[in-house]
Protein backbone atom coordinates (compact mmCIF):
# COMPACT_ATOMS: atom_id res chain seq x y z
CA UNK A 1 0.00 0.00 0.00
CA UNK A 2 1.14 3.53 -0.71
CA UNK A 3 2.04 5.72 2.22
CA UNK A 4 -0.92 7.98 1.41
CA UNK A 5 -3.47 5.19 1.61
CA UNK A 6 -1.74 3.98 4.72
CA UNK A 7 -2.23 7.26 6.41
CA UNK A 8 -5.82 7.64 5.25
CA UNK A 9 -6.74 4.27 6.63
CA UNK A 10 -5.03 4.98 9.89
CA UNK A 11 -7.05 5.80 12.94
CA UNK A 12 -5.17 9.05 13.26
CA UNK A 13 -6.81 10.23 10.10
CA UNK A 14 -10.27 9.38 11.38
CA UNK A 15 -9.50 11.24 14.56
CA UNK A 16 -8.32 14.27 12.61
CA UNK A 17 -11.47 14.31 10.49
CA UNK A 18 -13.67 14.57 13.57
CA UNK A 19 -11.46 17.29 14.93
CA UNK A 20 -11.62 19.33 11.73
CA UNK A 21 -15.36 18.75 11.36
CA UNK A 22 -16.32 20.15 14.73
CA UNK A 23 -15.94 23.84 13.89
CA UNK A 24 -17.91 23.22 10.66
CA UNK A 25 -20.93 21.36 12.00
CA UNK A 26 -21.88 24.03 14.50
CA UNK A 27 -21.97 27.00 12.13
CA UNK A 28 -23.44 24.88 9.34
CA UNK A 29 -26.41 24.07 11.57
CA UNK A 30 -26.52 27.72 12.56
CA UNK A 31 -26.82 28.73 8.95
CA UNK A 32 -29.35 26.02 8.17
CA UNK A 33 -31.74 27.19 10.86
CA UNK A 34 -31.81 30.73 9.49
CA UNK A 35 -32.15 29.58 5.92
CA UNK A 36 -35.12 27.46 6.97
CA UNK A 37 -36.64 30.52 8.63
CA UNK A 38 -36.16 32.67 5.53
CA UNK A 39 -33.51 34.97 7.00
CA UNK A 40 -30.23 33.74 5.49
CA UNK A 41 -27.51 34.57 7.96
CA UNK A 42 -24.09 34.73 6.32
CA UNK A 43 -22.45 36.26 9.38
CA UNK A 44 -21.47 32.95 10.99
CA UNK A 45 -17.84 33.82 10.39
CA UNK A 46 -18.21 36.92 12.54
CA UNK A 47 -20.26 35.20 15.21
CA UNK A 48 -17.65 32.47 15.61
CA UNK A 49 -14.85 34.97 15.77
CA UNK A 50 -16.50 37.05 18.47
CA UNK A 51 -17.30 34.02 20.62
CA UNK A 52 -13.84 32.56 20.16
CA UNK A 53 -12.38 35.83 21.36
CA UNK A 54 -14.66 36.51 24.30
CA UNK A 55 -14.40 32.91 25.46
CA UNK A 56 -10.63 33.15 25.71
CA UNK A 57 -10.64 36.61 27.27
CA UNK A 58 -13.28 35.88 29.89
CA UNK A 59 -11.68 32.54 30.65
CA UNK A 60 -8.27 34.09 31.06
CA UNK A 61 -9.44 36.94 33.26
CA UNK A 62 -11.86 35.01 35.48
CA UNK A 63 -10.29 31.59 35.41
CA UNK A 64 -13.73 30.08 35.07
CA UNK A 65 -14.49 27.76 32.19
CA UNK A 66 -18.20 28.10 32.83
CA UNK A 67 -18.07 31.88 32.63
CA UNK A 68 -16.03 31.62 29.45
CA UNK A 69 -18.65 29.34 27.95
CA UNK A 70 -21.45 31.66 28.98
CA UNK A 71 -19.69 34.73 27.67
CA UNK A 72 -19.02 33.08 24.33
CA UNK A 73 -22.60 31.92 23.99
CA UNK A 74 -24.07 35.23 25.04
CA UNK A 75 -21.98 37.17 22.58
CA UNK A 76 -23.01 34.81 19.78
CA UNK A 77 -26.68 35.22 20.63
CA UNK A 78 -26.22 38.98 20.89
CA UNK A 79 -24.72 39.03 17.40
CA UNK A 80 -27.76 37.16 16.10
CA UNK A 81 -30.09 39.53 17.90
CA UNK A 82 -28.23 42.54 16.51
CA UNK A 83 -28.49 41.26 12.96
CA UNK A 84 -32.16 40.62 13.64
CA UNK A 85 -32.62 44.14 14.88
CA UNK A 86 -30.91 45.65 11.84
CA UNK A 87 -32.78 43.49 9.40
CA UNK A 88 -36.23 43.27 10.96
CA UNK A 89 -36.45 46.71 12.53
CA UNK A 90 -34.12 48.96 10.59
CA UNK A 91 -34.80 47.14 7.31
CA UNK A 92 -31.15 46.59 6.46
CA UNK A 93 -30.66 44.15 3.63
CA UNK A 94 -29.72 40.99 5.48
CA UNK A 95 -26.85 40.07 3.19
CA UNK A 96 -25.18 43.48 3.41
CA UNK A 97 -25.92 43.65 7.13
CA UNK A 98 -24.24 40.29 7.65
CA UNK A 99 -21.23 41.33 5.61
CA UNK A 100 -20.94 44.37 7.89
CA UNK A 101 -21.23 42.15 10.96
CA UNK A 102 -18.38 39.99 9.72
CA UNK A 103 -16.27 43.04 9.11
CA UNK A 104 -17.14 44.36 12.53
CA UNK A 105 -16.21 41.10 14.23
CA UNK A 106 -12.89 40.87 12.47
CA UNK A 107 -11.95 44.44 13.32
CA UNK A 108 -13.42 44.59 16.79
CA UNK A 109 -11.72 41.41 18.06
CA UNK A 110 -8.30 42.55 16.90
CA UNK A 111 -8.97 46.03 18.25
CA UNK A 112 -9.90 44.72 21.68
CA UNK A 113 -7.12 42.16 21.59
CA UNK A 114 -4.66 44.96 21.20
CA UNK A 115 -6.30 47.12 23.81
CA UNK A 116 -6.38 44.29 26.33
CA UNK A 117 -3.08 42.54 25.67
CA UNK A 118 -1.01 44.96 23.61
CA UNK A 119 -0.64 42.17 21.06
CA UNK A 120 -2.33 42.12 17.69
CA UNK A 121 -1.59 38.62 16.56
CA UNK A 122 -2.88 36.30 19.23
CA UNK A 123 -3.60 35.86 22.91
CA UNK A 124 -0.50 33.76 23.50
CA UNK A 125 0.41 36.01 26.43
CA UNK A 126 -2.81 35.04 28.21
CA UNK A 127 -3.36 31.79 29.98
CA UNK A 128 -6.24 30.44 28.02
CA UNK A 129 -8.61 27.82 29.32
CA UNK A 130 -9.45 24.74 27.29
CA UNK A 131 -12.52 22.57 27.30
CA UNK A 132 -11.64 19.12 28.59
CA UNK A 133 -11.07 16.03 26.52
CA UNK A 134 -13.31 13.09 27.18
CA UNK A 135 -12.21 9.51 27.15
CA UNK A 136 -15.18 7.28 26.84
CA UNK A 137 -14.52 4.24 29.05
CA UNK A 138 -15.89 1.36 26.97
CA UNK A 139 -15.46 2.86 23.56
CA UNK A 140 -11.79 3.62 23.97
CA UNK A 141 -10.91 -0.04 24.36
CA UNK A 142 -12.33 -1.00 20.98
CA UNK A 143 -9.44 -1.15 18.52
CA UNK A 144 -9.37 1.45 15.68
CA UNK A 145 -12.89 2.75 16.34
CA UNK A 146 -11.94 3.59 19.89
CA UNK A 147 -8.90 5.48 18.68
CA UNK A 148 -11.03 7.45 16.28
CA UNK A 149 -13.98 8.19 18.50
CA UNK A 150 -12.55 8.48 21.97
CA UNK A 151 -10.41 11.18 23.50
CA UNK A 152 -11.96 14.16 21.74
CA UNK A 153 -12.72 17.54 23.12
CA UNK A 154 -16.09 17.68 24.83
CA UNK A 155 -17.28 20.16 22.21
CA UNK A 156 -16.63 17.63 19.45
CA UNK A 157 -19.16 15.34 21.08
CA UNK A 158 -21.41 18.30 21.54
CA UNK A 159 -21.14 18.97 17.81
CA UNK A 160 -22.18 15.43 16.94
CA UNK A 161 -24.97 15.72 19.44
CA UNK A 162 -26.04 19.09 18.14
CA UNK A 163 -27.02 17.57 14.80
CA UNK A 164 -29.48 15.43 16.73
CA UNK A 165 -30.60 18.37 18.85
CA UNK A 166 -31.11 20.32 15.65
CA UNK A 167 -33.29 17.53 14.28
CA UNK A 168 -35.50 17.57 17.35
CA UNK A 169 -35.58 21.33 17.48
CA UNK A 170 -36.66 21.68 13.87
CA UNK A 171 -38.99 18.73 13.51
CA UNK A 172 -40.21 18.00 17.00
CA UNK A 173 -40.84 21.33 18.69
CA UNK A 174 -43.44 24.01 18.10
CA UNK A 175 -40.71 26.57 17.51
CA UNK A 176 -39.18 24.38 14.81
CA UNK A 177 -42.54 23.97 13.14
CA UNK A 178 -43.04 27.72 13.20
CA UNK A 179 -39.56 28.32 11.84
CA UNK A 180 -40.27 26.06 8.89
CA UNK A 181 -43.68 27.59 8.31
CA UNK A 182 -42.33 31.14 8.43
CA UNK A 183 -39.57 30.28 5.99
CA UNK A 184 -41.91 28.70 3.48
CA UNK A 185 -44.92 30.94 3.59
CA UNK A 186 -44.79 33.90 5.95
CA UNK A 187 -48.32 34.91 4.97
CA UNK A 188 -49.64 31.53 6.03
CA UNK A 189 -47.88 31.81 9.37
CA UNK A 190 -49.16 35.33 9.84
CA UNK A 191 -52.72 34.22 9.02
CA UNK A 192 -52.76 31.95 12.08
CA UNK A 193 -51.46 34.67 14.36
CA UNK A 194 -47.75 33.82 14.37
CA UNK A 195 -45.43 36.77 14.88
CA UNK A 196 -43.15 36.27 11.90
CA UNK A 197 -40.53 38.80 12.96
CA UNK A 198 -40.21 37.20 16.36
CA UNK A 199 -39.74 33.70 14.96
CA UNK A 200 -37.08 34.98 12.58
CA UNK A 201 -35.36 36.77 15.44
CA UNK A 202 -35.30 33.53 17.44
CA UNK A 203 -33.83 31.72 14.45
CA UNK A 204 -31.06 34.31 14.18
CA UNK A 205 -30.34 34.06 17.91
CA UNK A 206 -30.23 30.27 17.74
CA UNK A 207 -27.89 30.61 14.83
CA UNK A 208 -25.71 32.79 17.06
CA UNK A 209 -25.75 30.06 19.68
CA UNK A 210 -24.55 27.42 17.22
CA UNK A 211 -21.96 29.79 15.79
CA UNK A 212 -20.74 30.56 19.30
CA UNK A 213 -20.11 26.90 20.08
CA UNK A 214 -18.11 26.58 16.88
CA UNK A 215 -16.07 29.62 17.78
CA UNK A 216 -15.47 28.48 21.36
CA UNK A 217 -14.20 25.14 20.10
CA UNK A 218 -11.73 26.87 17.79
CA UNK A 219 -10.04 28.93 20.47
CA UNK A 220 -10.55 26.67 23.48
CA UNK A 221 -10.23 23.17 22.09
CA UNK A 222 -8.84 23.02 18.60
CA UNK A 223 -6.08 25.31 19.84
CA UNK A 224 -5.74 27.10 23.14
CA UNK A 225 -5.48 30.72 22.14
CA UNK A 226 -7.26 33.30 20.05
CA UNK A 227 -5.55 34.43 16.88
CA UNK A 228 -6.73 37.20 14.56
CA UNK A 229 -9.18 36.00 11.92
CA UNK A 230 -8.69 32.49 13.24
CA UNK A 231 -11.98 31.27 11.74
CA UNK A 232 -10.16 31.39 8.38
CA UNK A 233 -13.30 31.08 6.30
CA UNK A 234 -14.94 28.27 8.26
CA UNK A 235 -18.09 30.35 8.56
CA UNK A 236 -18.31 30.39 4.78
CA UNK A 237 -17.45 26.73 4.36
CA UNK A 238 -20.24 26.02 6.81
CA UNK A 239 -22.69 27.78 4.49
CA UNK A 240 -21.50 25.53 1.69
CA UNK A 241 -21.96 22.48 3.91
CA UNK A 242 -25.48 23.46 4.89
CA UNK A 243 -26.40 24.23 1.28
CA UNK A 244 -24.95 20.94 0.09
CA UNK A 245 -26.81 19.17 2.87
CA UNK A 246 -30.11 20.80 1.98
CA UNK A 247 -30.31 22.42 5.44
CA UNK A 248 -31.25 19.06 6.89
CA UNK A 249 -29.34 17.69 9.90
CA UNK A 250 -28.15 14.44 8.36
CA UNK A 251 -27.28 16.04 5.05
CA UNK A 252 -25.45 18.87 6.76
CA UNK A 253 -23.60 16.39 8.93
CA UNK A 254 -22.53 14.36 5.91
CA UNK A 255 -21.50 17.48 4.02
CA UNK A 256 -19.45 18.62 7.01
CA UNK A 257 -17.93 15.15 7.10
CA UNK A 258 -16.99 15.48 3.45
CA UNK A 259 -15.51 18.92 3.98
CA UNK A 260 -13.71 17.76 7.10
CA UNK A 261 -12.27 14.69 5.35
CA UNK A 262 -11.09 16.76 2.43
CA UNK A 263 -9.51 19.21 4.81
CA UNK A 264 -7.80 16.52 6.81
CA UNK A 265 -6.73 14.88 3.58
CA UNK A 266 -5.15 18.12 2.46
CA UNK A 267 -3.09 18.16 5.62
CA UNK A 268 -2.01 14.53 5.19
CA UNK A 269 -1.39 14.80 1.52
CA UNK A 270 1.15 17.55 1.88
CA UNK A 271 3.83 14.86 1.97
CA UNK A 272 2.67 13.19 -1.21
CA UNK A 273 2.75 14.36 -4.79
CA UNK A 274 -0.86 15.47 -5.26
CA UNK A 275 -1.16 19.24 -4.96
CA UNK A 276 -3.13 19.98 -1.82
CA UNK A 277 -4.78 23.06 -3.38
CA UNK A 278 -6.73 20.88 -5.77
CA UNK A 279 -7.91 18.65 -2.96
CA UNK A 280 -8.98 21.62 -0.89
CA UNK A 281 -10.92 22.94 -3.84
CA UNK A 282 -13.16 19.88 -4.02
CA UNK A 283 -15.81 20.91 -1.46
CA UNK A 284 -16.41 24.26 -3.14
CA UNK A 285 -16.63 22.79 -6.60
CA UNK A 286 -18.99 20.18 -5.19
CA UNK A 287 -21.18 22.91 -3.70
CA UNK A 288 -21.38 24.83 -6.96
CA UNK A 289 -22.34 21.64 -8.77
CA UNK A 290 -24.89 20.77 -6.09
CA UNK A 291 -26.39 24.23 -6.39
CA UNK A 292 -26.73 23.86 -10.15
CA UNK A 293 -28.15 20.35 -9.96
CA UNK A 294 -30.68 21.37 -7.35
CA UNK A 295 -31.86 24.33 -9.42
CA UNK A 296 -32.13 22.17 -12.54
CA UNK A 297 -34.17 19.60 -10.67
CA UNK A 298 -36.64 22.19 -9.41
CA UNK A 299 -37.03 23.54 -12.93
CA UNK A 300 -37.51 20.10 -14.48
CA UNK A 301 -40.16 19.24 -11.95
CA UNK A 302 -42.17 22.32 -12.82
CA UNK A 303 -41.91 21.49 -16.52
CA UNK A 304 -43.12 17.97 -15.93
CA UNK A 305 -46.15 19.04 -13.93
CA UNK A 306 -47.15 21.28 -16.79
CA UNK A 307 -46.85 18.57 -19.42
CA UNK A 308 -48.80 16.11 -17.34
CA UNK A 309 -51.59 18.60 -16.83
CA UNK A 310 -51.80 19.12 -20.56
CA UNK A 311 -52.12 15.42 -21.25
CA UNK A 312 -54.72 14.92 -18.55
CA UNK A 313 -56.85 17.76 -19.78
CA UNK A 314 -56.84 16.41 -23.30
CA UNK A 315 -57.63 12.94 -22.05
CA UNK A 316 -60.58 14.05 -19.99
CA UNK A 317 -61.54 17.16 -21.89
CA UNK A 318 -64.82 17.55 -23.75
CA UNK A 319 -64.94 15.92 -27.19
CA UNK A 320 -65.07 19.28 -28.97
CA UNK A 321 -61.57 20.02 -27.65
CA UNK A 322 -59.23 19.07 -30.46
CA UNK A 323 -56.05 17.18 -29.60
CA UNK A 324 -52.92 19.31 -29.88
CA UNK A 325 -51.69 17.78 -33.10
CA UNK A 326 -54.94 18.40 -34.92
CA UNK A 327 -55.09 21.95 -33.66
CA UNK A 328 -51.59 22.61 -34.90
CA UNK A 329 -52.47 21.41 -38.36
CA UNK A 330 -55.52 23.55 -38.46
CA UNK A 331 -53.54 26.59 -37.43
CA UNK A 332 -50.89 25.93 -40.00
CA UNK A 333 -53.20 25.37 -42.92
CA UNK A 334 -54.49 28.90 -43.17
Amino acid sequence: MSPLLDSIFSSDFGFAVLRVMTPLIFPALGFAITDLAGVVNISLEGMMLMSAFFGVIVGAFTGSLLLALLAGILIGIAMGAALGYFHLKLKTDIILGAIAMNMFASGFTIFLLYVLTGDKGSTSSLKSLVFPEVHIPLLRSIPVLGDILSGHNVLTYAALLSAIVFFFLIFKTPLGLRIRAVGQNPDAARSVGINVDRVQLYALMLSGLFGALGGLYLSMGYVSWFARDMTAGRGWIAIAAATLGGNMPLGTFLAALLFGSVNALAIYIASVNIPSELIQMIPYVATVLALALYAIRVQKRRQKIKEEALEEEYDSGPPDNPPPAAAKQRGGSS
Partner: peptide
Protein backbone atom coordinates in the same frame (compact mmCIF):
# COMPACT_ATOMS: atom_id res chain seq x y z
CA UNK B 1 -4.51 52.64 18.54
CA UNK B 2 -4.77 49.58 16.31
CA UNK B 3 -5.60 49.74 12.63
CA UNK B 4 -8.73 47.65 13.07
CA UNK B 5 -10.55 50.70 14.37
CA UNK B 6 -11.08 51.38 10.68
CA UNK B 7 -12.72 48.02 10.07
CA UNK B 8 -15.12 48.68 12.92
CA UNK B 9 -16.06 52.08 11.49
CA UNK B 10 -16.56 50.59 8.04
CA UNK B 11 -19.00 48.13 9.50
CA UNK B 12 -20.92 50.83 11.32
CA UNK B 13 -21.14 52.99 8.21
CA UNK B 14 -22.36 50.09 6.07
CA UNK B 15 -25.06 49.18 8.57
CA UNK B 16 -26.30 52.76 8.79
CA UNK B 17 -26.31 53.31 5.05
CA UNK B 18 -28.12 50.10 4.24
CA UNK B 19 -30.64 50.47 7.08
CA UNK B 20 -33.55 51.80 5.11
CA UNK B 21 -35.47 52.68 8.22
CA UNK B 22 -32.54 54.65 9.63
CA UNK B 23 -33.84 58.24 9.77
CA UNK B 24 -36.99 56.82 8.19
Amino acid sequence: VPFELVTVIQAVIIILITAEAFLG
